[in-house]
Lab assay of single mutants.
Amino acid sequence: ENVFHPVECSYCHSESMMGFRYRCQQCHNYQLCQDCFWRGHAGGSHSNQHQMKEYTSWKS
């Protein structure tokens, strides 16, 4: 089941984030949609070496 997250992806700027959401544990307010995370995208001061937390629902 695809879950809708009402936040913007920090890389592709999609405002309709579906599926899993990934939030960086080091960068303030840096979040990736499932597609950008799986493709290994990073931007700004974010590094792929940073720990990311996976969210499967909006409330989590």
Rank of each mutant, 00 (worst) to 15 (best):
Ser14Leu: 07
Ser57Ala: 13
Met52Ser: 01
Gln49Gly: 14
Trp38Tyr: 15
Ser45Ile: 03
Lys59Trp: 09
His5Pro: 08
His46Asn: 04
Gln34Val: 06
Tyr22Leu: 04
Phe37Gly: 04
Asp35Phe: 15
Lys53Cys: 07
Phe20Trp: 14
Gln51Glu: 13
Arg21Met: 13
Gly40Ala: 03
Gly19Asp: 10
Arg39Phe: 04
His46Leu: 03
Met18Tyr: 13
Phe37Val: 10
Gln51Cys: 07
Cys27Gly: 02
Tyr22Ile: 04
Ser57Asp: 13
Ser16Asp: 11
Gln51Tyr: 13
Gly40Ser: 05
Val7Gly: 09
Ser45Leu: 07
Thr56Phe: 01
Gln31Tyr: 10
Arg39Gly: 11
Arg23Ser: 13
Asn48Arg: 06
Trp38Asn: 15
Gly43Ala: 04
Cys12Gly: 01
Arg23Met: 11
His13Lys: 10
Cys12His: 02
Gly43Val: 04
Lys53Leu: 08
Asn48Gly: 10
Glu8Gln: 07
Cys27Thr: 00
Cys9Lys: 00
Val3Phe: 05
Ser57Met: 12
Ser14Cys: 09
His5Ala: 06
His5Glu: 14
Ser45Cys: 12
Ser45Met: 05
Gly19Val: 08
His41Asn: 13
Tyr11His: 10
Glu8Ile: 08
Glu15Trp: 08
Gln31Leu: 07
Gln34Trp: 02
Asn2Ser: 15
Trp58Ser: 12
Glu15Asn: 12
Ser16Val: 11
Gln25Thr: 11
Phe37His: 08
Thr56Gly: 12
Tyr55Pro: 09
Met52Pro: 02
Ser60Val: 12
Met17Leu: 12
His28Met: 11
Tyr22Ser: 03
Val3Gly: 05
Arg21Gln: 03
Ser14Val: 13
Leu32Gln: 03
His28Phe: 08
Gly43Lys: 07
Trp38Cys: 15
Gln31Phe: 14
Pro6Val: 09
Phe37Ser: 05
Met52Cys: 06
Gln26Gly: 05
Lys59Gly: 15
Gln51Met: 04
Cys12Pro: 00
Ser47Thr: 10
Asp35Glu: 11
Ser47Ala: 04
Thr56Asn: 10
Gly40Val: 05
Ser60Ala: 03
His28Trp: 07
Tyr30Val: 06
His41Val: 14
Tyr22Pro: 00
Glu15Ser: 12
Gln25Asn: 08
Gln34Ser: 09
Glu8Cys: 05
Tyr30Cys: 02
Gln51Asp: 14
Cys12Thr: 00
Tyr30Asp: 02
Gln49Asn: 12
Cys27Val: 00
Tyr22Ala: 08
Cys12Phe: 00
His13Asn: 06
Cys12Ala: 00
Gln25Ala: 05
Arg23Glu: 12
Ser47Asn: 12
Gly44Pro: 02
Cys33Asp: 00
Glu8Asp: 06
Ser45Gly: 14
Trp58Asp: 15
Pro6Ser: 10
Asp35Cys: 08
Ser57Pro: 15
Gln25Tyr: 04
Arg23Ile: 09
Asn2His: 03
Gln26Asn: 12
Gln34Gly: 10
Gln25Cys: 08
Gln25His: 06
Ser45Pro: 10
Gln26Trp: 02
Cys9Ile: 00
Gln49Glu: 14
Tyr55Phe: 07
His13Tyr: 07
Glu8His: 09
Ser10Tyr: 04
His50Ala: 02
Ala42Pro: 03
Cys24Arg: 00
Glu1Gln: 04
His41Pro: 06
Ser45Tyr: 02
His41Met: 11
Cys27Asp: 01
Arg21Phe: 06
Met52Glu: 02
Ser47Gln: 10
Lys59Val: 08
Ser10Gly: 03
Asn2Glu: 12
Ser45Lys: 12
Cys12Asp: 00
Arg21Lys: 12
Asn2Asp: 02
Trp58Glu: 15
Cys9Pro: 00
Ala42Asn: 09
Ser16Trp: 06
His50Phe: 01
Arg39Asp: 09
Asp35Trp: 04
Gln25Phe: 04
Ser47Leu: 04
Ser57Gly: 10
Cys24His: 00
His41Arg: 13
His5Phe: 06
Arg23Pro: 02
Gln31Glu: 14
Glu1Thr: 07
Ser60Asp: 15
Val7Cys: 11
Cys36Gly: 02
Cys24Asn: 01
Glu1Tyr: 11
Met17Asn: 12
Glu15Ala: 10
Met18Lys: 12
Pro6Arg: 10
Arg39Asn: 13
Cys24Pro: 00
